[in-house]
């Protein structure tokens, strides 16, 4: 098998694993949340969610009928032999995965409303590229549902508002989202950079495993404070009341223009479907996460 074929197979496999499996760190957090909840309504919602995650794994069926918009974060080694062609290979893999798994076709032309039928289209799949050292390719795949993408928000704050302004923006975003993004959600917060960069790092931060703490102690404390603040709203699972609206808040940041304070807030539903893989230049590849038996 040549490298291009390996890469295609790897992506199809990543998409399949993600469709059938909620990320294990998220599943663990949902189980913990179920133990903490007291109201019947919250317990019923979380029990059904946890039961559904097991059922999807056993029956090898999509966790949710919204199998998402295919989104990739790539780290391409400068000596990895395939580069510009990666985009075409990803499109091929997405087409194949959509047909073989199958996935729901979610790529629609915004003007004609025509559905391409295979999850590809203009600029879709969505691909973010980073060039790194080395000769391998690392891919992170996210199947992002429409409900929680619709509640993503951007705030261009006045810098005089400082950290309290950031906290207030996060709270505002959560109150506007309410029951819509299928809570419990994971919240990514991107601070600084620019309008588009803060949203990108917010989404990427939400993909950090929940059991992997932020290495920066100040941010770790801020994440904990934001999580408590969000959950004290009482929106709870599915917005029907309870203690758990968010499972985690993850913060990332970039330097910014002195006159700007961009804050991006990215919500991801409990059905957080992601996979990570590494492809080597000899065509071998490993699915690094999630571990599936």
């Amino acid at each position: 098998m040549n490298l291009e074929e390996s890469l295609e197979s790897c992506v199809v496999r990543m998409m399949e694993v993600a469709a059938f499996n909620v990320s294990p760190d998220v599943t663990k957090a949902l189980r913990k949340a179920l133990d903490r909840e007291e109201s019947d309504v919250a317990k019923i919602n979380l029990s059904a969610i946890v039961e559904n995650i097991e059922a999807a794994k056993q029956e090898r069926k999509p966790v949710c009928q919204d199998t998402g918009t295919p989104t990739f974060f790539l780290k391409i080694g400068e000596d990895f032999p395939v580069k510009a062609k990666i985009h075409e290979i990803l499109r091929r893999a997405v087409r194949r995965a959509t047909k073989e798994i199958p996935l729901r076709p979610n790529a629609v032309n915004p003007w004609t409303l025509e559905n391409s039928g295979d999850n590809t289209g203009r600029m879709v799949p969505i691909v973010h590229v980073e060039i790194v050292e080395g000769n391998s390719l690392e891919l992170t795949y996210l199947a992002k549902g429409g409900g929680s993408e619709n509640t993503v928000q951007l705030f261009m704050l006045s810098p005089v508002l400082g950290v309290n302004g950031i906290k207030k923006a996060v709270l505002e975003a959560i109150y506007r989202a309410g029951p819509k993004p299928c809570p419990p959600v994971v919240v990514g917060v991107g601070v600084g950079g620019s309008s588009e960069l803060c949203l990108k790092i917010a989404k990427r931060a939400a993909l950090r495993p929940i059991d992997q703490p932020n290495p920066d102690e100040k941010l770790r404390n801020l994440e904990r404070e934001l999580l408590d603040m969000i959950n004290s709203s009482g929106f709870g699972p599915m917005g029907l009341g309870g203690r758990t609206y968010a499972l985690a808040v993850h913060v990332d940041w970039a330097h910014k223009h002195p006159a700007s304070l961009p804050v991006g807030i990215s919500t991801i539903c409990w059905a957080l479907r992601k996979s990570v893989a590494k492809v080597h230049s000899d065509g071998s590849f490993e699915i690094l996460a999630p571990e599936v038996v």
């Binding site: 309504v41 309290n164 207030k168 709270l171 029951p179 004290s232 009341g241």
Partner: peptide, 23 residues
């Protein structure tokens, strides 16, 4: 309407959350 009830209670809590941030 359970959603409206939850929303109303959340709105009541919002001010005390904001006060705790001293905003």
């Amino acid at each position: 309407n359970l959603y409206i009830d939850v929303m109303r209670k959340a709105e009541e809590r919002k001010n005390s959350i904001l006060r705790s941030l001293s905003i």
